[in-house]
Each structure stands twice: as C-alpha cells, then as structure tokens.
C-alpha cells in the first residue's frame, strides 16, 4: 500500500513538472493532446523507477502546502538578501585579498535528509561559508569558513538564522 502511494505521488509530481515545461504548446495557451500523452507515459515510468527513493526519511512532510508558502517567503526574503551580501563580500575580498580561512565543525541539530540538504545549499550560497562534508550519523556539518573568528563556533555564529528556517521549512 505504502509502495503504491509512493509511486503515484511521484508520478503526479513529475506530471505536474511536465505540464509546467510544456505549457503554451497547444491552442489558446493550453496543452497539445500529444504532449499530454507523452507526459503521462514519462511520469508513469519515472514514478515507478524512483518512487521509493524520493520519500525516504521524513520526505512526506514536504507535501504540506504551508511549507511551500514558507519556502517562497524564505527565497525572496532572507535568502536573496544574504546572497546579495555574499556577493558584495566576495567582491571586497577579491579586491583586498584579505582572507583568514579554515574548516570548522558545528552541529545544527537537524534530523532529516531534506533539512540537511536545505541548510547545506543555503550555507554554500551565503556569505563566506562553503559546506564541505556532513556526517550522516551525528549530523555534524564541516564548513570551510573564509574568515574564521572562532575555531569551535556554534551554529548561529556561522550561518545566522538559517538553521531555524531549515527547521521551519523542511522538518
């Protein structure tokens, strides 16, 4: 039963993605019939092949709509601001050449794979930090920090409010 639910949800998600991809292919901005048929066949195959892989370890929680809303708020709010700041930071370091790098370790207390991926990608795109490795068993993050202020920092010292956002959106 669980297997069938995994297959159908994945197939439906892939079909939705295909609908986005092939919009405006038919008359009046709708879809052409052959595109719909091809999309259905492809979605079924992909769902059968990858269904059990997608929903491992707490992935079901991502289907709640309020998390998508939070994710959008996060993208246009704190994330875009941090990304712009990161780029100005890199510009400053390219011009002055002033760096003080090191690899630090901290534990943000995230349990699920989705939450860890979310935080790792956020860290890589925000000021002065680059995720290098994640310990699967303990959840420790190893981060290359371009301006080390503290050799054993807390999670908040390295990446600010992002662990809290990761917990809200993905856990």
């Amino acid at each position: 039963m669980r297997r069938v639910a995994e297959w159908t949800t994945t197939a439906l998600l892939v079909f939705a993605l295909y609908l986005v991809f092939s919009a405006f292919s038919g008359r009046w901005g709708l879809w052409a019939p052959d595109e719909l048929l091809a999309g259905a066949v492809i979605a079924l195959l992909v769902g059968l092949a990858t269904g059990p892989l997608v929903w491992k370890r707490g992935g079901w929680r991502l289907l709640q709509p309020q998390r998508w809303l939070l994710f959008l708020v996060y993208l246009v709010g704190p994330f875009l601001y941090a990304m712009a700041k990161a780029n100005l930071d890199v510009a400053w370091r390219v011009i002055t050449g002033r760096i003080n790098p090191g690899i630090v370790r901290f534990n943000p207390n995230l349990q699920t794979d989705v939450g860890r991926t979310f935080l790792a990608n956020s860290i890589t795109l925000t000021p002065g930090t680059l995720t290098m490795d994640v310990d699967d068993a303990t959840g420790d993050f190893f981060v290359h920090w371009i301006n080390v202020k503290d050799a054993s920092p807390t999670a908040d010292a390295v990446c600010g409010p992002f662990p809290r956002w990761a917990r809200r959106v993905a856990e």
Binding site: P101, I103, R105, A120, T124, L130, T131, M132
Partner: peptide
Amino acid sequence: HALARAAHRSGIKPFRAVVDRL
C-alpha cells in the same frame, strides 16, 4: 559541495588554514 569534498579527500590542504576540523 561535491567538488570541495573531493578536493579535500584527494589531499589538497587549505591555503594558510588556521584550523582544519575535517
């Protein structure tokens, strides 16, 4: 992220690193 981890595992030391917990 994959490239950084691969570079570290293939033995490249970070330049003038003050600390290397990995």
